[in-house]
Amino acid sequence: RHLLSHRAGLPALDCPLTPSEAADGNSGAQAVAAQRPQWEPGTDHGYHAQTYSWLVGELVRRVTGRTIGRWIAEEIARPLGLDFWFGLPDDETHRVGRIGPVEPPADGSGTLRLRPKRSVTEAYGDPQSLTRRAFGAIDPLPDENDPGYRAAELPASNGISTARALARCYAAMIGPVDGHRLFAPATLTLARTEESAGPDRVLVVNTRFGLGYMLHGPAAPLLAPGSFGHPGRGGSLGFADPESGIALGYVTNGLQKGVTADPRAQALVRAVRSAL
């Protein structure tokens, strides 16, 4: 529960990993096992921006004997027919768009203003802050267009998917999709029952998490109070809303600065909400 709800106290590493170490399948788990927690596990929460890869990846490996990329490919992506990868195969590389930055509108309309005491941008600009150290657990940050990074199994940061596959995956969490359902009713309840809430030690703003998923709130405005899902760095978004039966996926290769509520994704959420 602590791992899945960002309460483990291990969002940062005293000795960051190089991109090659982060991707080698062993160094990450060894690093978080040796790391002294930033707070007593279970007493607070903070987004495990990079270390989530190794915490959850190692949990899956210990339980199933398979890497998380292989497990997802065999148990989720293949049965559901998803274009969804953690560890992109060589024969799929030609289909992946090149990622690059995109600037918000000059009038500021593309900026989400949450007005915390200290903005996440300010915190990220401080090399000693937990925010900067959490996102810098891999140093230097990998190039998203590097084939080696795309081939790694880093579920905190390098999932590659189409929007349709992302939506289809979330749809299978709340109901059957072509005969496949991912979550039993009890698991669905766990995914969207609040485990963490309040000021996030890493993201600075207030965040809410169930087990493995962000919940509807200021940092992640989803469709409705019962929705669960997750925004991605740069603008992507996936979520499901059991009450309406809606699942949504949005991906972009034009990365804006930000981690939570991207205005492009939010425009789509508002459109869906108004259609309902």
Rank of each mutant, 00 (worst) to 15 (best):
Gly87Ile: 08
Gln38Ser: 12
Thr43Ala: 10
Gly110Ala: 04
Thr93Gln: 12
Pro101Arg: 11
Pro41Thr: 05
Thr93Gly: 00
His94Ala: 15
Gly69Pro: 04
Arg98Ala: 12
Pro37Thr: 06
Trp39His: 11
Lys117Arg: 14
Tyr47Thr: 03
Lys117Glu: 12
Val60Cys: 14
Gly81Asp: 09
Asp91Ala: 03
Leu59Val: 02
Arg98Tyr: 01
Leu114Asp: 02
Leu55Tyr: 03
Ser119Lys: 08
Val120Asp: 00
Ala31Val: 02
Trp85Met: 07
Tyr47Phe: 09
Val63Ser: 14
Gly97Phe: 00
Arg61Glu: 02
Gly110Thr: 01
His48Tyr: 01
Ser119Cys: 01
Glu103Gly: 00
Leu112Ala: 14
Asp91Cys: 04
Tyr52His: 12
Pro101Glu: 02
His48Val: 01
Ile99Lys: 01
Pro105Tyr: 08
Val60Met: 10
Glu74Asn: 09
Arg78Val: 08
Gly42Glu: 10
Trp54Ser: 08
Leu112Trp: 07
Pro105Leu: 05
Ile68Phe: 14
Gly65Arg: 05
Tyr47Met: 02
His48Phe: 02
Gly100Gln: 14
Thr64Trp: 09
Arg62Gly: 05
Val32His: 03
Leu82Thr: 10
Leu82Ile: 05
Arg113Phe: 05
Thr64His: 12
Asp83Glu: 14
Arg78Gln: 15
Phe84Tyr: 15
Pro89Trp: 06
Arg36Tyr: 00
Val102Glu: 15
Leu114Gly: 02
Gln50Ala: 14
Arg78Asn: 13
Ile76Glu: 15
Ala49Phe: 08
Asp90Ile: 01
Arg113Val: 12
Val56Leu: 14
Arg115Phe: 13
Arg62Ile: 04
Thr93Glu: 15
Leu80Thr: 11
Arg118Phe: 00
Trp85Asp: 13
Pro101Leu: 02
Asp44Leu: 11
Asp83Leu: 00
Gly42Gln: 09
Ala33Arg: 15
Trp71Ala: 14
Gly108Gln: 07
His94Ser: 15
Glu40Thr: 11
Pro37Arg: 11
Ile76Arg: 12
Gly57Tyr: 08
Gly57Thr: 04
Glu103Ile: 01
Val120Cys: 00
Lys117Gln: 11
Thr93His: 08
Gly100Ile: 00
Gly65Ile: 07
Arg61Asn: 07
Gly100Asn: 01
Ala49Arg: 05
Glu103Val: 06
His45Pro: 03
His48Leu: 04
Ala33Leu: 11
Phe86Gly: 07
Glu40Gln: 13
Arg70Leu: 13
Val56Met: 13
Leu55Arg: 01
Trp39Met: 05
Gln38Phe: 00
Arg66His: 13
Pro104Phe: 06
Gly57Phe: 10
Glu58Trp: 07
Trp71Asn: 03
Trp85Ala: 09
Tyr52Leu: 12
Glu40Asp: 07
Leu82Tyr: 07
Gly97Met: 03
Leu59Tyr: 07
Phe86Arg: 07
Ile68Ala: 14
Val63Thr: 13
Pro79Gly: 09
Ala77Pro: 10
Pro41Met: 03
Glu74Trp: 05
Gln30Glu: 14
Tyr47Ala: 07
His94Leu: 09
Trp71Val: 01
Gly69Gln: 04
Trp71Pro: 08
His48Ala: 11
Ala31Leu: 07
Asp107Leu: 09
Ile76Leu: 14
Pro116His: 10
Trp85Gly: 00
Asp107Phe: 09
Leu88Phe: 08
Val60Gly: 06
Arg95His: 08
Pro105Ser: 06
Glu92Gln: 13
Gly57Ala: 11
Gln30Val: 00
Glu58Lys: 04
